[in-house]
């Protein structure tokens, strides 16, 4: 058994219980199907929990951190943060300025040579412009500031 699997079980139980509570707020006729699916999810998670306990008794417990050997939190979380900021910036300043800021920021953080930053940012912006704005006629978000 991996210790990290405990987190998986807790997460699935939390989702299951949340949906269970919401299911009981539905009218009776609409409850049956979601209730069945939710109970199925909880039953399968319980079966997995039982298997984890049996596995722990037989083979012991491992940390599960071996799956995270290559994980670089100092790289991953800043990038995830930049993605979230990108979405927020897109909402405020609009798609194209936010995209340029995100691309440049992310590539600088990943220490990409400057000429490649310039080239790839221009290429991505041009690709989106021609494929989506020109070809598909999708109006990308203008942002609150420029509306």
């Amino acid at each position: 058994m991996k210790k990290t699997d405990i987190g998986v079980v807790v997460f699935i139980y939390a989702v299951g219980v949340l949906f269970l509570v919401m299911t009981f707020q539905l009218p009776a006729a609409a409850q049956t199907y979601p209730l069945f699916i939710d109970l199925l999810l909880l039953a399968l998670t319980t079966a997995y929990l039982v298997r984890m306990v049996i596995g722990a008794r037989r083979k012991g417990v491992t940390s599960g951190l071996e799956d995270f050997q290559d994980f670089l939190p100092g790289q991953f979380f800043p990038i995830l943060g930049m993605v979230i900021l990108y979405l927020a910036a897109m909402y405020v300043v609009g798609f194209y300025p936010a995209t340029v800021l995100f691309m440049v920021g992310c590539l600088l953080f990943l220490r990409v040579p400057k000429w490649q930053i310039l080239l790839s940012t221009a290429a991505v912006a041009a690709l989106v412009y021609f494929a989506f704005t020109m070809f598909l006629r999708v109006r990308m978000p203008a942002g609150l500031l420029f509306r």
Binding site: F95, L107, L110
Partner: peptide
């Protein structure tokens, strides 16, 4: 390093479109 932001931008554009 280039694929990470490029794929992210295309995901955002694709889902918005």
């Amino acid at each position: 390093a280039i694929l990470i932001p490029a794929v992210t931008v295309l995901c955002v554009v694709g889902s918005y479109a």
